[in-house]
Every structure is written in structure tokens, then in C-alpha cells.
Design a protein around this nucleic acid. Structure first.
Lengths: 249, 249
DNA sequence: CATATATTTGCAAAAACCCGCACAAACACG
DNA sequence: CGTGTTTGTGCGGGTTTTTGCAAATATATG
């Protein structure tokens, strides 16, 4: 019995039944409960499942997500969000821009997290009104309806008056020499402002975004503190970033 | 039976029914009431529910169910919104504050309407991103999560730099001598600012709000241009307003 | 204010968990 | 092929979590 087989079975079981029990699985596979626990731990570390006392549950059982829209690379974005959610600490002030990855992150922020989130994304703002402890600040301005974020000089102005601890960027394109880039000029200016008024930059990046470039540059690679992705840390795509001193998660 | 399952079930139950009983839950899950109490305590400590003697209720301050909550006096609000939607003309700049009546109005704005809507309500902003022709401006600031609107000095500041043609107020209380009043101090200040930077004031009022008063005064009756309600124009409640020269719709 | 009903608290037992270790199979490489 | 390394697994023992019970306390309600 390969570990991989068990993992697949567990994931399949969770998709259909929404929960698995450690002792049940150990019986099914005829292995010790410790082995199952290690399986569950591994899957949980990858953000694929949620490990609980006695077994594991699927994330979709989580009451937070009702309507899972068809989102491009949805599974990967969930995994990234699951990893990234532990990067925010209590009392921190955090910029979050728009994008579906950031939306997933917002959906998954631990209920006991006591931070201030500053965002120009309307969907994120709407979602976080349901969070019990987050202090929420919306940055006003003209709406870019296609992206559901506010843009324009007022946004830049507002941002320039704030110094945040973290900036979490849903990253459209990243290239280790050229940096982070964007396709919309107004959004670029906003993201630049966020980046420049924040102590740490965290980029959430799905694998296919690495090495791609868009017309407008938001910032250089060396400004980034952490990249969260689904790739293995040893993947050669990531080596240039590691060499620059960026933490990969 | 995983603890997690119980928690999720409880949250789900609260979302739909708004209350749960300790005794009932212990019976459903076949565990002791103590266990249920510990579950409720845990969820309450996370701020997800409100624990009360005998069970728990959904946290009214943190409405998980704002979206799918049965809206109070829904039918009347729809009627009012239907009437009000013709009051906005092309090229006008319009303030809209929060509230379910205004949300219904936003939902019903004619697709060919070419106006600028300025709002501090996140649900309204989210809804109007779907509108093909509306220019949308969101007023940023700290979120009042219970009402899903932004509040605070930044909002007032921003408003003071704008002169709108219309201001559409979802009105909580109106009294022909005392004026329009509100229950939340921060919201009051925002609504005052909207009112004072607008040429025309339109109040959307469901019948039971007439003659009621809240602690904080937003503005005087004579500032109002138009009241939209479901009452007949000849209703004697409306006479004092008609005499002040207010148009009733 | 009395009584039934809930709740809190401390406790103990069972279940689940974590950690380190040992061992075997698979693998890498000279 | 031999040998050192990695990986997966099970086991023992100490720790933590969960749960039910009982006694003491608190709360609702007529």
C-alpha cells in the first residue's frame, strides 16, 4: 500500500463524505493509526484538508464558503491561502489588494485573528464584515468595476498616509529579474503605493505566474519578503528568488 | 462524531434558525449537555455565536446572515425602490447611504441610467459593479461591520469635498417636528455630511418609521425635498410634510 | 421567593495525540 | 555488488484532548 494511494483515497473520501476518522482509515488500510495521522498531517500541511482531533474534515465543510464560484486554478489558490493565513499576526496592520487568491485568504483568516485589514477590494471587504475580530478599513475611490477594486488618486493619497506591517499581493506576474508586473495601469499605481508603504511584502503566486511579465512594473524582486506558492521549495524556478533572500512557503 | 462536525452543524443551524437549544443538540448528537455547553463556549469565545442561558443565538452584532436574512418589511421596500428609481436622472451625482431599502433601489436602477453613484455601503458597491453604465465611487474609511458601511472622519472629509445633486437616505426614523434621526452616532455624522453636501434630499421611508425618533438628529424636515413611501398621499400622517412643501411619492 | 432548570467546576477515565526510536524496504552511488 | 542514505512504518511511553459525572452554584419564571 503506497502512501500516495492512501492520500488519494483520503482526499476522495473527504470530497464525498466531508470527514474521515483516524481509526476508521487505519482499519481500512490495515496500518497503524500513527501512519494515518502522519498522512493527515502531511495533507493538512499542504492545505488540502483540515486536521482535527479524531480525524480530518474538508475545507468546504467550513461554513465560511457557501458559493464556490468557478475560479481559475481554484484548488491551488485555496492551498496558497491556507498556507498564507498563518503569516498574519495579532495586532498587525495589513494591506490586501484584490484578486481571487486574496479573497480565498480572507475567507480563511482564523476567527480569533485580531488584526487590521486595509483593502481596496469590495468583495474582500464584504466578506470580512462577517469576521468577528478583524478591524476593517476600506480604501475609497473610483471603482474599477471589472476588478471590483477602488483605484485613482484618492486611493494613492489614502495609502500614502498609512504605514502597514504587511502587504499581501495577489500577484499576476512575477519574474526574478523584472519583478512584479500588472496589466492595468491604475491598478499598478495602487499596488505600487501599497508596496511602498509596507514593511513586508508577501506575494501569493500560483505556479503558472512565475516567469511571466506584464506591461507595467509594480516593484522589484528584492522588495519581496515572502512568496507563497504551491511549488516545492526545491523547484528550480524558485532558486533565483531563494538566492535573493526571499522566503518561500 | 467529531467535535468539528458539531461545531459546523451548530453554526449552520444558527444561520438558518437563529437559535439552538443545549438540550436539543445533546439529543441530536447523543452526547451529554456538558459537551454541548463546551462546544457553545468554544464558539462563543471565538465570537462566532452568542451563548445564552439554555443554548445560543446568532450574534446580532456580527450578522453572519446579513445577506440571507429575511429583510424586514421586504415587500414595502421593494415598492419604494421601484418608485424611487425614476428620481435619478442621467449625469447626476448621487449619494446613497446603506440600508436594505437603498440596496433594493440599487438593484433596480435602470440599465441605461448614466449617473455617478457615491456610496459608503459595501453591499451597494458590490451590487453596482454589475451595472453597465453607472460610474461608481466608494467612500473609504473604517468599516462599521454591523451595517456594512464605512464611517469615521475620513468619510466625512471625503464627503465635504463633493457636491452631489441628490442624496438618497434609507431613513430609520422621521418625525415632522424633530426631523430625521438615527441610532448610531457614527452613522449619524456620515448621513449629516451627505445631507449637507447635496442639493436635493430624498428619503425612502417605510410607513412604520413615521413619527418615530432616535437619539441622534441627522437633519430637519424642511431640508427634505422628496419622501418616497407606500402610504397614500392623503394619509393624515403625511399632511405635515406636504405642508412643509415636501413632495410625496 | 421558591422551585425547576441550567450552568460551572473539579475530577477521572478513555481516547487520541506526539515524540523519539528502531527497523526494514527502497534508493543512490561508487 | 556493497554500503550509506532516505523513506515509510510500527511501537512504547508520556502528554493532551475530550467527555461524562457529580456536587455546588447560578438563572429563569410563576
Amino acid at each position: 500500500m503506497l502512501k500516495e494511494e492512501r492520500h488519494n483515497f483520503i482526499l476522495e473520501e473527504l470530497r464525498t463524505k466531508n470527514k474521515v476518522l483516524t481509526f476508521e482509515l487505519s482499519h481500512i488500510f490495515a496500518v497503524s493509526e500513527d501512519t494515518i495521522r502522519r498522512d493527515l498531517k502531511e495533507l493538512a500541511d499542504q492545505g488540502q484538508i483540515k486536521k482535527v482531533h479524531g480525524g480530518a474534515v474538508s475545507h468546504s465543510l467550513n461554513p465560511y464558503n457557501y458559493k464556490d464560484r468557478a475560479v481559475y486554478a481554484f484548488e491551488e489558490k485555496i492551498q496558497i491561502a491556507e498556507k498564507a493565513k498563518y503569516l498574519i499576526r495579532n495586532q498587525q496592520v495589513v494591506f490586501m489588494d484584490g484578486g481571487t487568491t486574496n479573497l480565498e485568504l480572507a475567507r480563511r483568516l482564523p476567527p480569533d485573528l485580531n488584526a487590521t485589514i486595509i483593502t481596496n477590494s469590495i468583495p474582500i471587504a464584504a466578506l470580512l464584515t462577517e469576521h468577528p475580530n478583524i478591524e476593517l478599513v476600506v480604501i475609497g475611490g473610483k471603482m474599477l468595476k471589472s476588478a471590483q477594486v477602488t483605484i485613482g488618486p484618492e486611493v494613492i493619497d489614502t495609502l500614502s498616509g498609512i504605514r502597514a506591517d504587511l502587504c499581501i499581493l495577489g500577484t499576476r506576474s512575477i519574474h526574478h529579474q523584472i519583478g512584479i508586473s500588472e496589466i492595468d495601469w491604475d491598478e499598478t499605481k495602487v499596488k505600487r503605493a501599497m508596496l511602498n508603504h509596507s514593511n513586508e511584502i508577501i506575494c501569493l503566486v500560483i505556479p503558472e505566474k512565475f516567469g511571466t511579465v506584464q506591461p507595467y512594473i509594480i516593484g522589484e524582486t528584492r522588495q519581496i519578503s515572502t512568496i507563497v506558492t504551491t511549488l516545492d521549495k526545491k523547484d528550480k524556478i524558485l532558486q533565483p528568488f531563494l538566492e535573493t533572500g526571499i522566503e518561500i512557503l
